[in-house]
């Protein structure tokens, strides 16, 4: 968890097995005045969600132990977190690559709500921020995308 700044509004949790990505996104989101928590081990996700109670989650799909889908399904089926917006952040293309296509198929098959959005790596920070804001309903906030 990065800092405990009470002035910062919404809480975002980053889940990715790559430490670099987690560090990158954490610093970027922190810069944009979000409270950030992160997990690289899928086993740590649920305990952290319950403790941190994020307003939004950035979730990778392909990870060891548990897939992104398993985490997604767990959250969407949990009444406490089913309303939490989740953005999928993946190096796989949404329409072409197998894991992403398979993710979509599984969502349909399990009658789960679609994610709040997809962000493909390398990350377009401006777009990511816009998506986050739109999901959190904070469109009037200033954007610091680092440029």
């Amino acid at each position: 968890m990065s800092g405990g700044d009470v002035l910062k509004k919404n809480k975002i949790m980053v889940v990715d097995d790559e430490q670099d990505i987690v560090d990158y996104l954490s610093i970027f989101l922190d810069d944009n005045d979000y409270q950030v928590a992160s997990a690289t081990d899928t086993d740590e996700v649920m305990p952290l969600v319950e403790k941190f109670k994020p307003d939004l989650m950035l979730l990778d799909i392909v990870m060891p132990k548990k897939t992104g889908f398993a985490i997604y399904k767990g959250l969407k089926e949990d009444p406490c977190f089913s309303d939490m917006p989740i953005l999928i952040v993946s190096a796989f293309s949404k329409t072409r690559d197998f894991p992403q296509v398979e993710f979509d198929r599984m969502i349909k098959e399990n009658n789960l709500p679609r994610p709040g959005g997809y962000v493909e790596k390398p990350i377009d920070r401006k777009r990511l921020l816009e998506l986050i804001k739109s999901q959190l309903g904070e469109n009037d906030r200033n954007v610091d995308n680092g440029h």
């Binding site: 670099d20 990158y24 970027f28 990350i123």
Partner: peptide, 17 residues
């Protein structure tokens, strides 16, 4: 490559920050 670029871009961003 996309993963590595993300890592590089992240490194650059973190350094600039």
């Amino acid at each position: 490559i996309k993963n590595i670029i993300t890592g590089l871009e992240g490194g650059l961003y973190v350094m600039k920050t």
